[in-house]
Design a protein around this nucleic acid. Structure first.
Lengths: 356, 356
DNA sequence: TATTCTCTCGTTAACGTTACCGAACATTGC
DNA sequence: GCAATGTTCGGTAACGTTAACGAGAGAATA
């Protein structure tokens, strides 16, 4: 009613131009660090920008600029056994959708984590096309390292998600700290059992030789528990199968043998262990700790069979990687080193609120 | 190189217009459900929109539209004893910053949670000014209910954060489910101790009569544990003080008396209990469970004195409330009912990765 | 028949920024 | 002294959308 609503115009490029007695073109040149501006006027404009704390309107910028940035995303394809990568893909799709109006084109390549040739194939495709950056979830370590080296020669930015490998990418790594992940499992274990407890560590996956990173988790787990000096008896068993019937046989024999108080499954395959104890309720169930917020895992969590799920939000990782590239290319933000992703603890009493 | 890079122009309002043989003005009228369009052309345009799955460019829209939406945020002010609201405020500030380029004006009012008059004052100010919506963190229940009723009469949208109260707001509640929060604490407790364990529940705060919601937590906690039929001996003690020296005296006597195995602090004041056991290392420390990711709490977590912190991300709540209003007013998205916020479990082994 | 009104629709300025084009002037080379 | 080249800057179209303005056709009124 009253002339109370002062026209709160945004302080923009035009206002700077007026104050500095130059054209908006010149201001733009200063803002974007382009040439063709004398030092005197550059300083004058910069001073005003600082004085008035000018903040560019990112929405206007994204409207004006026509981007031509192409991003390749290379991750394992979802298999029946591990819905894990489905979650990652969902985060990536969300990121793609947000970036699309900015003119960033993204192409997703899925490879079979049991077949190195499929990885070589998609990496070759990425090299051949004109991409500006590539997001990689490394499984085949040697092949991935060779690939990123090629990328760097072609000035292609690289970024890892999910697990880190020795050869550094240009933009870093987005994912959990695997050693800490193991330590956290150890920490939870220490609350569950006392001196002399028997602990069984299970690696369940076909082609275990490709999952070097599991060793890091195990090391963190063992180190943590051994440092407590409680004489825990820890045993590691590899079960290199994917099919339930095969896994069941192995489980049957090793659980018979060691009769553990705690079962620590080092990856997302904990649901098969859940199923085992669901099917064999005659056996006394140990405490069970596993990884990842997959439907099957949550199912056995809700049934009270799995006790703790340690989760690392694969969807956030995928989304974050794309968001990071957006900031790198469009906002030209300085590259920060990533903090590792959060590690979440999920039980039967908080799983229903996880992931908004 | 090759003419491979097809001009991937965005499919926009102009393309719709061309396909429908109308002007962009007409398309805009259809898109925004305005009048002055014949039914025939309206249908024709709508069909094309659906067929081509047109997605409006929100950045262009926000550039074009000049909003005049004013939001009031009413939360407790940060006190020395509880840095909790500082976190909430930070999330809100982040939200404000993001919304500012859309022309949404936000004003934050802080009130003293120990002085109801300060709340009445800021609520009065909100009513007097011309706001479109108000975000409220309810502490004084009766006064808040009277206030939201006034708001509704003035067509002012309301939304609660942090805790819910019986009189419904128009846009719902963003925060944790308090009963589940207590159940989760019970769940963790059940992993720590066995039959006949002694458990002490501590309510620590000046003016406890204002913290009705604590009862909900306690109820969830007790119900969960009693259902286990393990004959837990649970005791509740109120300590209606804020000063450490006063709290210490009370703690001293009640811990002497009941010598608990588990200490459950129902709010963010768990750090004072941490300090107590840090100062009195001669006393055998029980397991300690408390709430909220405050610096002081995390400090005693890292020292190994506090065992579990249950956290509800107050910053996310504040941010989410503003983001929700943005979607409500600008994107005109349909109001969905909120899922409660996640409830996180923090230990000495994952606190360093919390909150990216 | 002239006037007004209503309904439908096209045209256009504006939002804040980017990037290209070329003007104005200064400097260099012959 | 004149052309060629450089340097610095202003002007402006464009990005996709919104909303104000007004044009044209036909209906209703005088």
């Amino acid at each position: 009613m009253m002339s109370d609503d002062k026209d709160k115009k945004r302080f923009g490029i035009k206002d700077i131009a007026k104050l500095a007695n130059v054209s908006i073109g010149t201001v733009d040149r200063v803002l974007n660090n382009r040439k063709d501006v004398s030092e005197a006027t550059r300083k004058k404009v910069k001073d005003i920008i600082k004085e008035y704390n000018y903040q560019p309107n990112l929405y206007a910028r994204s409207l004006s600029v026509k981007n031509n940035i192409k991003i390749s995303v290379i991750i394992p394809k979802t298999s029946l056994q591990t819905g894990y990568w489905q979650l990652c893909l969902e985060g990536i799709r969300k990121g793609i959708q947000e970036l699309e109006p900015f003119g960033i084109q993204t192409e997703v390549f899925l490879y079979d984590q049991e077949d190195v040739h499929t990885f070589l194939e998609v990496s070759e495709k990425t090299i051949k096309s004109q991409f500006n950056a590539v997001v990689i979830a490394p499984i085949f370590i040697k092949e991935t390292e060779a690939f990123v080296k090629k990328c760097h020669r072609k000035k292609l930015q690289t970024i890892y998600i999910n697990s880190d490998i020795p050869t550094k990418s240009t933009l870093g790594y987005i994912g959990p700290d695997l050693n800490s992940t193991g330590r956290l499992a150890g920490n939870l274990t220490s609350y569950l059992v006392g001196t002399n407890a028997k602990i069984l560590i299970l690696n369940i996956a076909k082609g275990l030789e490709n999952y070097k990173y599991l060793d890091t988790k195990i090391e963190g787990y063992k180190t943590y528990l051994n440092n407590l000096n409680k004489n825990f008896r820890i045993e590691v068993v590899d079960i290199p199968y994917n099919e339930y019937t095969e896994v069941e046989k192995e489980l049957w024999s090793s659980i018979r043998k060691s009769n553990p108080d705690v079962l620590f499954v080092t990856n997302s395959r904990v649901s098969v262990v859940g199923r085992f104890f669901y099917d064999h309720q005659e056996i006394k169930k140990p405490y069970i700790i596993g990884f990842d917020f997959l439907e099957a895992n949550v199912d056995y969590l809700s049934k009270g069979i799995v006790d703790f799920l340690i989760c690392q939000r694969p969807d956030k990782q995928g989304y974050f990687a794309l968001n990071y590239l957006y900031r790198f290319f469009l906002l030209k933000e300085n590259v920060m080193n990533f903090k590792p992703m959060p590690i979440d603890i999920i039980t039967v009493e908080n799983y229903m609120f996880y992931e908004n």
